[in-house]
Amino acid sequence: MTTYRPSLANSGNSMTSSILGHAHLSADKAGSTKIHADKVNVFYGEKQALFDVSLDISQKAVTSFIGPSGCGKSTFLRCINRMNDTIPICKVEGTIEIDGQDINTRSIDPVVLRARVGMVFQKPNPFPKSIYENVAYGPRIHGLATGKDELDAIVESSLRRAGLWDEVADRLLQPGTGLSGGQQQRLVIARAIAVGPEVILMDEPCSALDPIATAKIEELIDELREQFCIVIVTHSMAQAARVSQRTAFFHMGRLVESGPTDEIFTNPKDTRTQDYITGRFG
C-alpha cells in the first residue's frame, strides 16, 4: 500500500505502471492477454458455482460474459477483483493472473488489487455524498492527489471521460443520489476511472436503465475500450453483440465457449451456445 502510486489516469496512455511491480510493457499491445484464468473453481459453502473455468481476456478490448441466470458469469467476474473475499462462505480455487501475476497469492493485498481492477455494479450505487466527493473518494483513500487543485483535476477529467461533466459541472456539490439512474451509473463509472484502474469490470451495468441511458453507457464503454481492459456481464445478447469484441458463454457454472464476438454469434461451435443465442432457452 505504501509504495503504490498508480498513474493518475489523466492521460489515457500512461497505463503501463503496474501495482504488482511487473511492468509488462508488451502486455499493452492491443489484443494481447491481460487476464489469464486457469481452472477456476468457486464454492459457496457446499455448493459449487464454477467448474474449471479457463479463459484469457484481452487487453484494450471489451469482453462480454453471457449466459442464463445463475450460470456463474457474475461469480467469475467477482473473482477478477477478489470481491468474493467479502462473502465469508465463498472459496476460490485455481489461478487468475493479471499481467502474469497471480492475484490469489498471499502477497497480493485485495485492497491494492481492487484499485487496479475497478468495478461497476448492476444497480447504480453512488455513495450518499456529493457528486464531487463520490469521484474524489478513490483518489482520497489512495492518496493520489497532493492538493485540492490536483484532486479537482482528477475529478474533472474522470467526469469528462465518463461523459458526465457537461451535465453536472454546475452542481458538483449536490448529492450524487439525486441524479437520474443513467447519470448515477456514469457517475459510478467516473468514480471507478478516478483511481486509474487497468481493468474495469461491469456487472450488468445497464439492466436497471432505460434504453436511452443504456445507449449512452454503451457509447461510453466503446470509448473507454481505448484505455482499459473492460469485462462486461450482460443478459442482453444484443448488447454483447454491440459493445464487445470477444464473448464468453457460460452455462451451469462452466465456460462453454469463448472467442471473437462475431464468431460466437454467427458460427457457434457448441449447440448450447447456439440454443441460447437463438433464444431457445435462457
Binding site: N81, M83, T86, V111, V112, L113, R114, A115, R116, G118, M119, F121, K123, N125, P126, F127, P128, Y137, G138, I141, H142, V188, R191, A192, V195
Partner: peptide, 20 residues
C-alpha cells in the same frame, strides 16, 4: 451495494466504515 462500491474502489474495511 454501498459497501461493495467502496470495497471495489480498493477501500479497506475501516475506510469503508468510516467514509461510507
Amino acid at each position: 451495494a454501498l459497501r461493495d462500491g467502496s470495497y471495489a474502489m480498493g477501500a479497506t474495511k475501516s475506510e469503508t466504515v468510516k467514509n461510507v
